[in-house]
Design a protein around this nucleic acid. Structure first.
Lengths: 188, 188
DNA sequence: GTCTATACGAGGATAGAC
DNA sequence: GTCTATCCTCGTATAGAC
């Protein structure tokens, strides 16, 4: 056994592994504490409250997710590939860590109609990342119509995630990717 | 004052008006009871439990929603119009009753990872309705590629709803409709 | 910094009277 | 069939010791 991680990290690990499977509401703090081998005061002293823990877990996810997406963009062979990299990244990301049911960010937004400021911040950050990157990758393809393409891709990405609630996630990713490819072709 | 509706209906009205605004989890039974002017035993004798009430409320929504969509399809001028009728229906439906934050069905699916059978049933019913109708309306446009178009439209519909969690719903509907229109053009 | 133990409130559901 | 009153569980958060 290696030396134990500090409690803060253990809590984040457990939160990340549990919160987005059944959903933030359906996962009691108690379950996270047990998985982390931690006690209530550790959680509340480090993160303030449950929403604080969720926000911190989402921050970690955000960084990992951005990196995975970056790598896929860098590996893409052409302009359309750099758009579709988002769906490749989904495949990679999900196959590596798939326990979650669907998008951790959208799921959190759905669970908290009136999120704490720190929670809203990370949710908005991810939305902005999506919008910005999609516009960037859409521009070489669609030129002046890049904003329209980026919008349609944003809808397609959100739909890919939401479809995971209605059917197996591999199918959702495949359907989303195919839709995005059609859009790229239409705007080329 | 007109004579009061039976309790069962009052409960359904209240549930429908409240459950899908803040979400099924965030709306306590208590709130629904107060709004309905009803007592706990009325709810539990009529619907069994909270999930039963939600399932019943969704059933009513399903019927209304199907009708609104039907009417928009009937009023559409051409093949592409019959596809886009779905987004027109969203506008109509939402502008008439918009208190809810986003899709009542997807939101319920997200809130209950392991729904009671009656709940799963109505959720699956709506998914099937979407798939069937989209394939029907896609066929005159895309012919043999109708399934691919229908899939992409399904993603676009799911994304339209999910985007409502990240931005104002009118914008989400507009972006979704534009995406659907691009897809129709691409498959024509 | 981290733990044990506990307070506090909320939410879902029921017993029993009318 | 419907109500009043209540129970009981669960979930978040804190007090105080180590």
């Amino acid at each position: 056994m290696e030396p134990r991680k500090p409690v803060r990290e253990r809590l984040l690990d457990a939160a990340d592994a549990l919160l987005f499977v059944e959903g933030a509401f359906a996962t009691p703090v108690d379950t996270i504490l047990k998985a982390a081998g931690a006690s209530p005061p550790s959680l509340y002293s480090h993160f303030g409250n449950k929403e604080g823990l969720i926000a911190a877990a989402l921050h970690r996810r955000y960084e990992v997710w951005k990196q995975v997406w970056d790598d896929e963009i860098a590996a893409a062979p052409d302009d359309a590939g750099r758009v579709l990299a988002l769906w490749n990244a989904l495949r990679t990301y999900q196959s590596e860590r798939m326990t979650e049911r669907w998008c951790a960010f959208t799921g959190t937004a759905a669970a908290f109609p009136d999120p704490a400021p720190e929670l809203r911040e990370i949710l908005d950050l991810e939305t902005a990342l999506l919008r910005d990157r999609l516009l960037e990758t859409a521009t070489p393809i669609a030129g002046e119509r890049a904003e329209a393409l980026a919008s349609a891709l944003m809808v397609t990405y959100a739909g890919t995630m939401a479809l995971m609630l209605r059917e197996p996630y591999e199918k959702a990713i495949d359907e989303g990717r195919a839709g995005a490819a059609s859009l790229c072709a239409a705007f080329a």
